[in-house]
Design a protein around this nucleic acid. Structure first.
Length: 661
DNA sequence: TGAATATAAATTTTT
DNA sequence: TTTATATTCA
């Protein structure tokens, strides 16, 4: 009997002509975008300039895969922020007129790492109920260890705890040696390199001992997990038919490695990025990941998106010039078919307050002219630069949300409450213990450590009882210990535990802070967030990984106001757009910040930051700066506009001179 | 003498 | 708002 071999081609489902799609991809997308959407059988690198419909293309690709019959859960979307991920999923669902796109897997690298590690922590010798340390927690641990080291070292000045954490974090994220980081970035501490290194070891040991992971550990451990165990990597990566990574220029080397490992077997990775918008190198991001991608995946297709749908040609001419001066980049000149529009305006104000008044008045005029407040944003380099403006906005009754800067979970009183919860969840959490012990009158660092010492000796065994801690410690410490022990035993919803903690904490807070009524509102806010959770562990993980992004001041009042302008740091404005954008403090010394002016790489990053800021604008762009600023720190007077504006020829902008009535 | 509290100084950007 | 230093208290 004859047998004949007959093969069904892999991409028969991929042939668009044969299927009827709900979405008309040819009509909605330009040829480049269409190619991105339809290239689903190999790695893809998309170089997408600002405003070129990057998000739209990603959404359409998700929709396309789902329409081809793909299971949404097997699509993994790694984005930079949860805000971005949610936004994307919502839009994809709307496009498909179904909710299936909401099932797409995804989140930030850190949350993905958290998810995976909770499952496989044991492989690495961790317990799966590990606690996540945020930056300031990590700094607290380092500080704890540092003070133990200190007594003999008092003569020399040793790096501050934040500096130490920064050094360690950079080393991890860029896969370089601590020695090298110190040598390059902090030469003044070279002599103390031995202490810095040994402290790092103690830090690592400590985290392991108490089952703690900081942000860097999440990534490092995920990479280790995928890199060292073939079958495990196949199990994790095998869950996904397609992997897409947004904002690839802002990934660091460890994240880059993770992407490689995930795509190693199936070559099913698509990454999107714009080297001109890389603004997170201070966190170890390396836009060279973009250049490395084709080297690692030689079969990848590179697609550039250069048609800009966001800004008028007038704004593009300006922003193209700003980025032109950059040293190393993928060449691409953005163009737009929108009308020429107004040229960007550069406005010199006499003082900071005049600058604020100008912005306020202009906002009111734009509103008169029919713009909604939601279409207006004010951007700045550093969060403190908006203080004066905020006062003027309030005075003029213009509602606003602020992004960037201090977040709810960073406020001291919220951190206190979180520390209580963490200790209840994980009694081994020494950092948490330390913090809540110090809240009690009569307990300072010394006594706190004494108590901790006795506690940790005990926690190895079953439960702890306040009475067992004998000796000369204040009765308030006994009260605290029995309170925690009591709460730990209860099996109730997270919100109930929060309520008990608040009852216990409020008197302490009132004696510690004079402005406690204001803080009580934050606590209520916090409790209402807790209500959404069914597990304390998830609640705490989310607080560390995906905290509410709005700043403290706005959270409570948010829902009252329908229309509001956005004020934001440039970093937090990434990926967003508005009709009218004000960039305030475009002053040399503030933007670029003077910390960057003697470092070429840092300066390049500042330039890209300015580029990101200006490309947020669709129609109106205003750059303002006060001309007479005395900087207390450096003792210098700043008078010149940002050097990034200075290089642009005068024909590409208008200069406005302010006059008074 | 050691430890808690009062006082003074300083502050980029974020998962 | 937090962190290093000076001062006061036990």
């Amino acid at each position: 009997m004859d047998t004949k071999k007959y093969t069904i081609k892999k991409d028969v489902v991929g042939e668009p002509e044969r299927r009827v799609f709900k979405i008309n991809y040819e009509r909605d997308l330009n040829p480049d975008q269409l190619e991105v959407v339809r290239t689903i059988d190999r790695p893809v690198l998309v170089i997408a300039g600002a405003g070129t419909g990057k998000t739209k293309t990603l959404i359409y690709r998700v929709a396309y895969l789902v329409e081809l019959g793909g299971n949404p859960q097997s699509i993994l979307l790694l984005t930079f922020t949860r805000k971005a991920a949610n936004e994307m999923l919502k839009r994809a669902a709307a496009l498909l007129k179904s909710t299936s796109a909401e099932q797409v897997s995804g989140g930030t690298f850190h949350s993905f790492a958290n998810m995976t590690l909770r499952q496989y922590a044991k492989v690495l010798g961790y317990g799966e109920q590990f606690t996540i340390l945020d930056d300031s927690d990590a700094a607290d641990v380092v500080n704890l260890l540092r003070t133990r080291l200190k007594p003999e070292k008092k003569a020399q000045r040793f790096p501050k705890k934040e500096t130490l954490v920064d050094i360690y974090s950079r080393a991890e994220n860029t896969l370089t040696k601590i020695e090298e980081i110190v040598f390059k970035e902090y030469p003044r501490f070279i002599e103390q390199i031995d202490d810095i290194l040994s402290l790092k070891h103690q830090f690592d040991d400590y985290k392991r001992k108490y089952n703690l992971m900081d942000y860097d550990d999440l990534l490092k451990n995920l990479r280790e997990l995928l890199g060292q165990n073939d079958s495990l990597r196949k199990a994790v990566a095998g869950k996904y038919s397609h992997i897409m990574v947004d904002e690839f220029q802002d990934t660091n080397r460890v994240q880059g490695e993770i992407v490689k490992l995930l795509g190693q077997d199936r070559h099913n990775v698509m990454v999107v990025g714009d080297d001109a918008q890389s603004i997170y190198s201070f966190r170890g991001a390396n836009f060279k990941n973009i250049f490395d991608f084709p080297a690692y995946f030689p079969d990848c297709r590179i697609i550039k998106l250069t048609e800009n749908y966001r800004s008028t040609q007038g704004i593009l001419n300006f922003t193209n010039k700003v980025i032109d001066a950059a040293k190393e980049k993928y060449e691409k000149e953005l163009y737009s078919r929108k009308k020429a529009g107004e040229k960007p305006a550069i406005v010199a104000a006499e003082t900071e307050n005049v600058q604020s008044k100008f912005v306020v008045q202009r906002i009111l005029e734009l509103r008169e002219a029919g713009s909604t407040l939601n279409d207006i944003a004010v951007l700045f380099r550093s969060s403190y630069l908006s203080f004066d403006l905020e006062i003027e906005l309030t005075r003029a009754n213009i509602p606003y949300v602020k992004f960037g800067g201090m977040k709810l979970v960073e406020a001291a009183h919220i951190k206190d409450v979180i520390a209580f919860l963490r200790v209840i969840e994980n009694p081994q959490d020494a950092v948490g213990w330390h913090r809540i012990l110090l809240l009690h009158p009569g307990i300072g660092p010394r006594i706190a450590e004494k108590v901790l010492d006795r506690l940790t000796r005990r926690t190895g065994s079953a439960e702890m009882k306040g009475e067992e801690i004998e000796g000369d410690i204040p009765s308030s410490a006994h009260d605290l210990i029995s309170f925690i022990a009591g709460e730990g035993k209860k099996s109730v919803q997270p919100i109930d535990k929060v309520e008990s903690v608040l009852r216990y904490y409020k008197p302490l807070m009132q004696s510690k802070y004079d402005d406690y009524p204001k803080r009580e509102k934050d606590l209520e806010m916090f409790a209402s967030i807790a209500e959404r959770y069914r597990s304390l562990q998830n609640f705490l993980a989310d607080l560390a990984l995906e905290p509410p992004t709005e700043s403290v001041v706005d959270l409570g009042e948010k829902d009252r106001k329908e229309e509001q302008i956005t004020i934001s740091t440039v970093h937090s404005a990434k990926g967003l757009e508005w009709n009218s954008v004000f960039v305030i403090w475009a002053l040399d010394g503030k933007f670029p910040t003077m910390y960057a002016t003697d470092d070429d790489d840092a300066l390049e990053e500042e330039r890209r930051l300015m580029y990101v800021a200006c490309t947020r604008a669709k129609e109106n762009l205003y750059l303002t700066y006060p001309v007479n600023v005395y900087d207390r720190e450096s003792g210098r007077i700043f008078t010149k506009p940002s050097r990034f504006i200075e290089v642009v020829q005068a024909e590409f902008y208008e200069k406005w001179n302010l006059d008074f009535e």
